[in-house]
Design a protein around this nucleic acid. Structure first.
Length: 293
DNA sequence: AGCCAGGGTCTGC
DNA sequence: GCAGACCATGGC
């Protein structure tokens, strides 16, 4: 991987196993939006970037080399060898097919609070509407940032609000959940940063003390917000995928990186729902499907 | 119109 | 412990 500063952007070349589109469209993040020109504009940790991929190179517009090194490099997890993980899970035929369908997926290092709040909003909801609610949350309570757009409001900003204050979000029954989470985090009752190193069972239990946070949301916070790669979120799609494809549970080879395997699988079954059909023939059908990619 | 959405809570067995 | 109603909103 090579990093160089050009006049108006930072160029990062020599990337392996990275796809901007796959990473931004695989359902883990809600604030990256594809533009008509093929670039993606996103906001994370109060910073805005416009990113373009050409082959094995990324171009970061509106970003200095220092900002890239200090934040975006880690955010996109560019220093981790995903090829090694793919080869590891390839011991299993189904996982191999899933990983080969979108080998450029990365697990972003999103902020814990933003992730917690976003996945509370995600419950019993669809992705376009989740994005809409989050955008309204940011434009209403976030701060305007350089280059346009709004930061994600901190827990302390929301902790003092009442449910009616959240009415403009049109987030329905989730308003109370957001406020409970904001209060517990703002007052230090829940220390999200401490959960990076806590035993995972303890971290799970801690997160589920928040109203509106059950097993699924907790796993998403662990994986996307705290980068606990062993976390394994199971939503309705993953439940179908596991029942249909892994009735005995996730193969042993994938356990240490269950979260990455989950992301490959989730994206795979959502874009190839036929592999979940009753008469599909499981592994044989999957192997065929993989050859088409 | 009616079903469903990257679920969770609460109630009743 | 587990099933089932219910939750608020809008995309399709």
């Amino acid at each position: 991987m090579r990093v160089e500063a050009l006049d108006n952007c930072v160029k990062v070349s020599g990337l392996e196993d990275f796809s901007l589109v796959e990473t931004c469209e695989c359902g883990q993040c809600f604030r990256w939006n594809g533009q008509p020109d093929g670039t993606y504009i996103g906001i994370a940790a109060g910073k805005r970037a416009q990113v373009e991929q050409k082959g094995d190179a990324l171009f970061f517009y509106g970003v200095t080399e220092e900002e890239f090194e200090e934040f975006w490099r880690g955010y996109f997890d560019l220093d981790f060898d995903y090829g090694a993980v793919r080869r590891l899970v390839c011991g299993n035929e189904v996982l191999r097919a899933a990983a080969e369908f979108a080998p450029g997926i990365r697990i972003l290092r999103a902020e814990p609070w933003e992730t917690l709040c976003s996945f509370i909003i995600s419950q019993n909801n669809n992705i376009p509407r989740i994005k809409g609610i989050i955008e309204r949350l940011c434009s209403t309570f976030g701060e305007e940032i350089e280059g346009g757009g709004y930061s994600f409001p901190g827990a302390d900003r929301l902790a003092g609000l009442k449910e009616e204050d959240l009415a403009p979000l049109r987030c329905g029954f989730r308003a109370g959940y957001i406020l409970d989470a904001a209060r517990k985090v703002a007052e230090g009752e829940i220390d999200l940063e401490a959960l990076r190193l806590a035993p995972i069972e303890e971290a799970r239990a801690e997160l589920q003390k928040i109203r509106g946070v059950g097993p699924k949301v907790a796993e998403c916070v662990l994986l996307y917000g705290l980068h606990r790669l062993e976390a394994f979120p199971v939503d309705v799609w993953m439940k179908k995928a596991m029942t249909r494809l892994f009735p005995e549970g996730l193969p042993e080879c994938a356990r240490p990186f269950a979260g990455i395997a989950q992301q490959y699988l989730y994206h795979y079954v959502r874009n190839n729902p036929e592999v979940l059909e009753e008469r599909a023939g499981g592994v044989i059908f999957l192997a065929k499907s993989a050859n088409l990619v």
